[in-house]
Amino acid sequence: MKLNIQNETSRLRAVILGTAKSNGATPTLQEAYDPKSIEHIKAGTYPTVKDMIHEIESVAAVLKKYDVAVYRPEIIEDYNQIFARDIGLVIEDKFIKANILPDREKEIDAIKHVIAKIDADHVYKAASEDIHFEGGDIMVHNDYIFIGTYLGDDYSDCIVARTNMEGVAYIASLFPHKKVKAFDLNKSMTDPRDNALHLDCCFQPVGHDKAIIHKEGFRNPEEYEFLVDLFGFDNLFHIDKKEMYHMNSNIFSIAEDVVISERNFNRLNDWLRKNKITVEEVPYAEIAKQEGLLRCSTLPLIRD
């Protein structure tokens, strides 16, 4: 398999899509990794496996409609394997295994059959356990690589901080010809409305020259202004705190003119259509209760 990812929006040809087919029982509060899951566990509204299977298979159907080659993880019994984006990423022709939470190492093993199709010289894994990064924090945008991180003094105690500056440096070392830009994100272990779990929870390019953004997701206003200057204010769709909570920035592009979006994102979906982007609406509100959505569930391998 010859990998090729240059940006977030070129025509998609091959992707790994997560699975919910054996997601297991509702986690305990101690097992939860993020404040939104904790909120729904406490409320008794954590999503059922049946509903999550229905939602993720609706995405698979859309991908197949557009003739995208869809790879799936091997099933691990009673284990959450929905968020394929966390466990790896492709930039250019390199597959990079993420350095993720130790409890989730099994998820990488479940896609070994896909990684085996890639030339071993193009598969990378950071050697040091001090290097942290997950795919949701990393976006390639042509000449740029955008990386979400967290510079708070409490990083080591903050379970929702998934990418550190060592991780930023590691990615930069693999792509010395790229412009690597890090963004210090707001984190909260108690309130999902104030928690940008990954960069794609508060920002994502879409179309040819546009992006979705949540200004309050950035700790440093200058980093938000960098994106305003790069894209142009009129090309940014600003989402508010409620829309960020519902994961409006976490849609998924099949092409510059086709996206998969949650069916309840009315304001966003209208804006996309006004910008001549076809919106394939799917139900995904249940999976969103785990603080992840469509981009989180997909790991693109090949784009034109």
Rank of each mutant, 00 (worst) to 15 (best):
T48F: 09
I277G: 06
A60H: 15
E223H: 06
G135M: 01
F265C: 10
E286C: 11
A120D: 12
N269K: 05
A255K: 09
N235K: 07
M52E: 07
E134K: 02
S188E: 02
V140P: 09
P176T: 01
N220I: 13
E286D: 13
E39A: 10
K274H: 14
K289F: 03
L151K: 13
I115Q: 01
T298E: 04
A25Q: 11
N275H: 15
F237A: 04
A32S: 12
D34N: 11
F226H: 07
Y170G: 02
A196S: 11
D200I: 09
L227Y: 04
E8L: 10
E8Q: 11
P283I: 07
K64M: 11
S10V: 06
E225V: 15
N250P: 05
D257K: 10
I76W: 00
S297L: 07
D194M: 14
T26C: 10
N275M: 05
H208P: 06
F237G: 03
V70M: 05
K112F: 08
E134I: 08
M52D: 06
A98K: 01
D86S: 00
I159Y: 08
R263I: 12
D119T: 07
G44Q: 08
K276T: 10
S173L: 08
V49W: 01
F203Y: 05
M244A: 15
S10E: 14
T45S: 13
K242Y: 15
V49R: 13
H113L: 07
D103F: 00
H40W: 09
S261L: 07
I111E: 00
H141K: 13
R193T: 13
S156C: 09
R193P: 05
G88Q: 00
E77N: 10
Y71F: 14
D67H: 14
D154N: 11
D137L: 02
Y124P: 09
A182K: 13
N4Q: 09
R219V: 12
K187D: 02
M189W: 03
E225H: 12
C296D: 04
I87C: 00
P176G: 02
V258I: 14
D103M: 00
D67F: 13
P27C: 02
K241P: 09
I87N: 00
E31R: 02
R162A: 01
K50H: 10
L230S: 08
T190N: 01
A32V: 12
S37L: 06
A60N: 13
P221I: 08
E57K: 12
G167S: 01
M1T: 05
M1V: 10
I5H: 04
M1Y: 09
L299F: 09
E281H: 04
A172L: 01
V114P: 04
D194C: 11
A43S: 14
I100W: 00
F83D: 04
V168S: 02
S253I: 06
K64S: 13
Y46L: 05
K289D: 02
I5G: 03
K187W: 09
A14Q: 09
V114L: 05
I91A: 00
V258T: 10
V123F: 01
A120F: 09
T9V: 14
T149A: 04
A127C: 13
S58I: 09
A211E: 06
E105D: 08
N269D: 03
S156R: 11
K21D: 10
L12I: 10
D51V: 08
E77T: 12
Y33N: 14
V168M: 02
